[in-house]
Design a protein around this nucleic acid. Sequence first.
DNA 1: ACCTTTCGTCAGTTTATCTGACGATATATA
DNA 2: TATATATCGTCAGATAAACTGACGAAAGGT
Lengths: 150, 150
Amino acid sequence: MDDRPVTEQNRTLGALLRLTYEAMQREVYGALAARGFPEIRPAHSAVFRHIGPGGSRLTTLAERAGMTKQSMAYLVEGLQAAGHLRSVPDPSDGRARIVRLTARGEAVLAALLALSGEAEARVAERIGERRAGRLRRALEHWVAELDEAG
Amino acid sequence: MDDRPVTEQNRTLGALLRLTYEAMQREVYGALAARGFPEIRPAHSAVFRHIGPGGSRLTTLAERAGMTKQSMAYLVEGLQAAGHLRSVPDPSDGRARIVRLTARGEAVLAALLALSGEAEARVAERIGERRAGRLRRALEHWVAELDEAG
DNA sequence: ACCTTTCGTCAGTTTATCTGACGATATATA
DNA sequence: TATATATCGTCAGATAAACTGACGAAAGGT
């Protein structure tokens, strides 16, 4: 049957970013599961990426992650039930609660950062240090431009 | 309040890929909506990327996109309702149907490719042709390695 | 002719987002 | 100070985008 997709080799930059991003994600979250944290899913990174060392308010997390507080509450609820977060009343505001990482949550954050570093090192092995360095620098430049533009 | 996120500047390669991928996606699908196709969402690209010029079977699309046929059927159903696809019985197999792009669907595919090219050109303007070229080549290398590894 | 596989669908579930409404509390103003 | 307004987190419900399991109809192999 002559049924080749039109855009198979015709790879857009978006497609390249998607494929590599997904590969990275599979690697990191697969390894995290193997290390004893199978309950941590990619969506949870919104919490780990934005939580402060002394904890943060739900509203702050939601704002930083660019999502609604209801959505963030859903993620926090799951992590809390699994023992990665605890939430304590905010002494300075009776409406608010401070969400903090537990020891287990800190371990997940540390593992995520370590595994991401390892995954990047493996990429460098595969495509070469030079290219990997250029890749990272180009992406950093791009992201800096995005930050400027808002 | 001293509540800076731990990993704000500490950007992993995965985070860089995610930020740029999402920026690309916002740009392309935003422009696509502005061109008269607001109903096309990123998930639909699984169909446009993998459909053949003469149409494809649902099962083929699902396999290529790496998802279940039920999930692919859900995407196809939406595109069909919006007039981007039509499905005709497969003359060579009574169980199967061939999903084909309509003229409107072809227009979407063309627009997606054109807008992706334009978005990439704008990235090159922002970070420089040299860096953009290196970025694309590094990603292409990486993806080639992924294809080899399976 | 029968067994097995494949195609697409039906039914139901989960994850990850969203909107709208609301009580409780905090802050600003008249 | 009394009141109006804004903010914090939650309740309820919707939607998108995936999943699993089961199944009838059709095809293919023995």
